[in-house]
Simulated scan of single mutants.
Amino acid sequence: MMRWLLFFLTAAGTLFFNSSRFVDPWLVPKWGILVTGMVVWGLVTAVHWVYPFDRCPVRFRSWVEGGLVALVGVEACYGLFRAFAPGGGGVASLTGTLDNATGFAACLCVGFPFCLRLMGGTGWRRYAGVAAATVVLVAVALSASRAGILSLLAVSAVWAWKRLRFSPRVKGTTLAVLLLLLAGLLYGVKKDSADGRLLIWRCSLEMMKDRLLQGWGLGGFEAHYMDYQAAYFERHPGSRYAPLADTVQYPFSEYLNIGVAFGVVGWLAVVAWLVCLGRAYVRWPTVEKESGLLVWLAVVVFAAFSYPLM
């Protein structure tokens, strides 16, 4: 019971805790809560191994899932209320308890698989899951986070794949068409922003080519990216990306960020980690592991176009 309470408080703190006492009032307090919660959890678990005192209830996993669904539901509702209540800032202020729409959407996407898990239950659990999933979908869609929308689509498609009674060919064709239509729509909605990211990704790949194995180290992207962007425009003075150039501190892709910092070695470590997770599910599939795998799928898709690890 104590460990469940610590887990719930840590998760709640990483969503809701802000403090003006820090230079960064949005992210640093949440990281502080995360580290503190992990340390306390580790100490309690270590003591429990030596002297068992905290017996987990039979419904421990259900409590965890219900707690996470409640947290993301409250976060989504708070974000919508803050944005659209009288005096709110509208869609532009749809950030919830985070500093921007990207962080808001990332948190909701990570919690979304647990909403789907409750939807597979019965009674009040199903209704709670449907309500939470609906408000999360609405909040992410209104936040205009393209990475968030793609992430939710990927999670929903994988979750529905084995639950819809159609042939694999029909499901695969439908999913491919939906992805192509959605990708084209999301590109057209914010075309300049998408083209700006293409420029950043091209320059980031140039950085990787120069230090393919060892990378540039932590902080290497921020220290050297502008030099590569300047060199790109020297080689392509008439580039259509010229009006979109700006000061950049992040490559808007976790994979490129890891590749620039740690080279191919960093990529191999990420691939090995994801393969281990997938292998663990395939060898011993359970509904709890399916939820965990969907959480990582949400992160993997989101990370391709944004920076959820921040």
Rank of each mutant, 00 (worst) to 15 (best):
G188Q: 14
A304L: 13
L218N: 09
L5E: 09
L118H: 03
N100M: 01
A303T: 04
A245K: 14
A83K: 02
G188M: 13
L294F: 03
M310C: 05
V110L: 14
G111V: 07
E75H: 15
G123A: 09
T14C: 15
I149R: 01
W284F: 04
A101S: 11
M226G: 12
G184P: 07
L94I: 02
F17V: 14
I33A: 00
V74M: 13
R55S: 13
K190Q: 09
L43V: 15
L186N: 08
G148K: 07
C56I: 10
G148S: 10
L94E: 00
D246Y: 13
G219Y: 10
V74R: 08
L9Y: 06
L116H: 02
W216D: 05
Y232E: 08
Y232D: 06
E290H: 04
V270K: 07
G121H: 12
Y241W: 15
G196K: 05
D210S: 13
L137M: 14
Q249S: 15
D192P: 04
V155Y: 06
A269H: 05
V271A: 14
Y187N: 05
W201Q: 08
A70H: 05
G263W: 11
S167V: 02
V189T: 09
S151D: 05
L294A: 04
L142K: 06
T10F: 01
F166I: 03
F302M: 08
R163N: 07
T45I: 04
L6T: 11
A12D: 01
S145Y: 05
W216Q: 12
R240K: 15
G172V: 05
W201I: 04
D195L: 15
F221M: 11
F302I: 04
M310K: 06
G121Y: 05
G120D: 11
A92G: 09
R235Y: 01
C56Y: 08
F166C: 09
L116C: 02
A83Y: 03
F7A: 15
A280S: 11
L186D: 06
P243Q: 11
A242K: 15
R82V: 00
E206I: 04
W41K: 02
L185F: 12
W26I: 00
F252N: 14
E234W: 02
R163A: 07
F221P: 07
A231R: 12
S239G: 11
S145T: 14
G172Y: 03
S253P: 07
F114S: 08
L277E: 06
C115F: 03
S253T: 14
D24A: 00
S151C: 07
C115M: 01
L293C: 06
W26F: 12
V110Y: 00
T134V: 13
C115I: 01
F252S: 07
G13V: 14
V72D: 02
G278P: 06
G13N: 14
R125F: 03
H236I: 01
D227I: 12
T14K: 00
Y307N: 06
G278C: 10
R126T: 10
R283C: 00
V270M: 12
A92Q: 09
G121N: 05
L244W: 08
P25S: 11
A245D: 11
L9D: 07
E206Y: 09
E288T: 08
Y225R: 12
